[in-house]
């Protein structure tokens, strides 16, 4: 039942000291048990350029420091958005995937704040 390549009955397994177990994707990559990790469902295909699709589950982390170029979940007024983060002259900006829309500066006074940084993605409808 619990054979891992180690406890053979005839010849002793040469791998006995090297048993590592299967990869636990949950703790290795996603780990929603971290107090700063949250799952977020993506709506819309605006970020197809970053291979993020409608219906995807983003795992985001509110403890990760923002960097230019990462995908973030940000609160803009009353709503949460998924978008790219850029940096210009020391200021953080949310960049829209649409060339027509202008970027929005991250600024508490205008109610634009980074909610968390995307660290992983789960897609269940492949």
């Amino acid at each position: 039942m619990n054979y891992q390549g180690d406890r053979t009955t005839g010849f002793a397994s040469p791998a006995g000291d090297n048993i590592e177990g299967t990869i636990d994707l949950m703790s290795a990559a996603l780990d929603l048990r971290q107090p700063s990790r949250y799952p977020v469902r993506v709506e819309g295909d605006a970020l197809l350029g970053r291979s993020i699709r409608h219906g995807d589950i983003l795992v985001v982390d509110s403890a990760v420091a923002p960097r230019a170029g990462v995908v973030v979940v940000a609160s803009v007024g009353d709503e949460l958005r998924v978008c790219e983060l850029t940096q210009r002259a020391g200021e953080w900006w949310l960049r829209s995937s649409s060339p027509q829309a202008s970027s929005i500066q991250v600024d508490d006074d205008t109610d634009v704040a980074i909610w968390a940084v995307a660290t992983g993605l789960v897609r269940t409808d492949v």
Binding site: V40, R41, I52, L80, R81, L94, S96
Partner: peptide, 15 residues
Amino acid sequence: RYTTRLEEIVRARSW
């Protein structure tokens, strides 16, 4: 139940 049920997690529009 944003953090304990997969059907109920937060939704965010991609922009």
